[in-house]
Design a protein around this nucleic acid. Sequence first.
DNA 1: CCACATCTGTAGTGAACACTACATATCTGG
DNA 2: CCAGATATGTAGTGTTCACTACAGATGTGG
Lengths: 200, 200
Amino acid sequence: MGMGRPREFDAETALDQAMEVFWRHGYEGATIAQLTEAMGINPPSLYACFGNKEGLLKAALDRYTKLRGVWMDEVVAAATAREVAERMLMGIADKQTDPANPPGCLLVQGGIACGTGSENVPFELAARRAQNEDQLRDRFVRAKAEGDLKETADPAALARYVSAVAVGMGVMASSGADREALRQVASVAVQAVAAQSKRA
Amino acid sequence: MGMGRPREFDAETALDQAMEVFWRHGYEGATIAQLTEAMGINPPSLYACFGNKEGLLKAALDRYTKLRGVWMDEVVAAATAREVAERMLMGIADKQTDPANPPGCLLVQGGIACGTGSENVPFELAARRAQNEDQLRDRFVRAKAEGDLKETADPAALARYVSAVAVGMGVMASSGADREALRQVASVAVQAVAAQSKRA
DNA sequence: CCACATCTGTAGTGAACACTACATATCTGG
DNA sequence: CCAGATATGTAGTGTTCACTACAGATGTGG
């Protein structure tokens, strides 16, 4: 039995293009026509490879978080909680205003609220954001154990805080905030983490 | 010349219902059928009164920011920059988890990214968020002039920061964060403003 | 070179969408 | 009580949407 005709496009390259469309227009705002054109394929190829529109989104999110994960590992590798927050938020200020990508963050732009029938899209995005938050929290737990953070510090609250600022910066970036404006926000935000550190 | 048949519904009451639908599903996710049902009217009444779907959104945003404006005035009436931030963020933690409304903030849930043809919806939301930020900035400018904030403090950056945290909290609320979690975020965030105050 | 399996492009499918034509109803001014 | 003006409910309109049937193309195993 033969193995069939091989696909003529590269799935990851196509996903990068789909990612950009979802990033710019959101899940509901992105049309199959836009997606297939950006990906350089026809609808049947899309559906054969990714199942349906939501499957394509999930695949794009997987790719996004995979690429992002490499960077997050570098972030949490910083020596102190303060430096973790600084790397994270300053890096995000740069990333979210990188002209190579649409502004903001796919995990927010993808779709915070959706219509009936797409309810689990926001849920899916939230789950990915929660992963980042968990990674931060674990890092802050360690910082507290190491005596880097004060005894009174709440690692989970700090992680939620840094996550919230990151999301807020993303929304600002998507509505036109420039890099310098985001860096200023990041700079202020880091002070709150510093306030929870023993060596201010 | 007569003045025609009077409308049988109250525009503001209907707007409150429309607001809730946009809030929960976003601009693109909300359908005319859902809106008219929630408003208790038929499509022709909606179009006669608000022009089109986008006109209805703008009217709903006007109402939202009007109601919100009353509260914002109370926020900036606080004595110090630190207290302004505290009232704002703690109040937002409560508002965004008020079961009387959908979770989060309409100015974010309404539509951060939209499809071709609705490009100015995100722009419209951003403009309303910017109003809040401007109000905060003016208040922080005053705080600096009064010697409440340090000489080195940047009122515009602080206002952007508080705005960003508020937006981030809204996204978290919409994805299930409870009131206590948001209050913890607010609590940490306020420390950054306190760090810019003379009397910590 | 043939049976089989998978991909690709063309050209649609039904459903849902925002929006509206039209007849009817209810008001005001004279 | 009539003429003009505006609102309402019914029942659509054309368009766009996500998705697919189908036929032809291109591969593998025997």
